[in-house]
Design a protein around this nucleic acid. Sequence first.
DNA 1: TTCCACTTTCCTGTTT
DNA 2: GAAACAGGAAAGTGGA
Length: 238
Amino acid sequence: MLDSVTPSTFLSNTMVCDPLMSWTEIFGTTEDDYPTCDHQTDADSFWTSIHPEHWSKHNVCEWLQFCCDQYNGLQLCNMTQEEFLDAAGICGEYLYFILQNIRMQGECSRNQMQNRKQLRDKACMKTGGISSQECHSHGRTNLQSSHLWEFVRDLLLSPEENSGILEWEDRGQGIFRVVKSEALAKMWGQRKKNDRMTYEKLSRALRYYYKTGILERVDRRLVYKFGKNAHGWQENKI
DNA sequence: TTCCACTTTCCTGTTT
DNA sequence: GAAACAGGAAAGTGGA
């Protein structure tokens, strides 16, 4: 079923998000094409006559609403970062991060709750530093309060979702590198609904994990290592 | 309501 | 000089 909706099925529409293209160029002009858009005629002339940087909030909402009409969730999720960039220019990267973040949350809520419980059960059995009870106390965290290190771990374990923000330096030893520090902070900020998050603050939170053994120091910039009390990152122990 | 663990914020100083 | 790191201190947050 998923195969029936490949990128090629909507790629022909990705151009609609190019803000510099007119409605006419992209969609034609007949009202039949867009019966749900009451402002089609006005909008048509508007989109073609005013540069997007001069759009009002209302104009932006209209444009976004139109984009919403073009895609469903599955199509969006099937888009690659490159396609987002093609479709929305420099905003594409940001929109892509937001979408991936939302996807991760959704998957967490459906699958990872169960998986993590199993993971924690296994990890707690193996972890000497954290008692089973302490371990399960982490389970009280919901998506909103999920721990930073788990967020980082999950990002590392989902290459298609971390968009090159993080990468393994030595998977076997749990050493990873922050490639895009600002993007990481932005994603974490989105997760915590905190648009003031910065990498400086995020890194401070990461450094606190040194005390608890969840992370270990690596004397290299932007490089961290999972400690003995971090679980779920090992390939063969998931 | 209180406690606690965790995170955020701010800060100063150091290192790269 | 800028970016990143280190870590103290205090405040904020949310679950139990």
